[in-house]
């Protein structure tokens, strides 16, 4: 991964392996956090009626299932797109882009 273009004139520090590692780790952490924000918002709509004095077990189960099914959905779509792309290119090799 080439981060030197994005960092621009930050210079030699960009090639610092410690900094490289730091950027990788923080980017991963941030992806995780971002998806948690997104799924919390989405699942809140599906699982929350009226906020009560505590998160009841029914809602908690709903949130866990919601996360699992959201990831399943994302993987399913990715797989299916991959499949359709494959069969498409097999059938339409003479149809150039």
């Amino acid at each position: 991964m080439d981060s030197s273009s994005a960092a621009g004139d930050l210079g030699a520090a960009v090639n610092d392996p410690q900094l490289q590692h730091f950027i990788e780790v923080e980017t991963q952490k941030q992806r995780f956090q971002q998806l948690v924000h997104q799924m919390t918002e989405l699942c809140w709509e599906k699982c929350m009626d009226k906020p009560g004095p505590k998160l009841d077990s029914r809602a908690e189960t709903c949130f866990v299932n919601c996360v699992e099914r959201f990831i399943d959905t994302s993987q399913f779509i990715l797989n299916r797109l991959e499949q359709t792309q494959k069969s498409k290119s097999a059938f339409s090799e003479n149809l150039s882009d």
């Binding site: 799924m39 809140w44 866990v64 699992e68």
Partner: peptide
Amino acid sequence: DAWNTVSRAY
């Protein structure tokens, strides 16, 4: 609570 539950599940 929801945020933490989602974070744990993920």
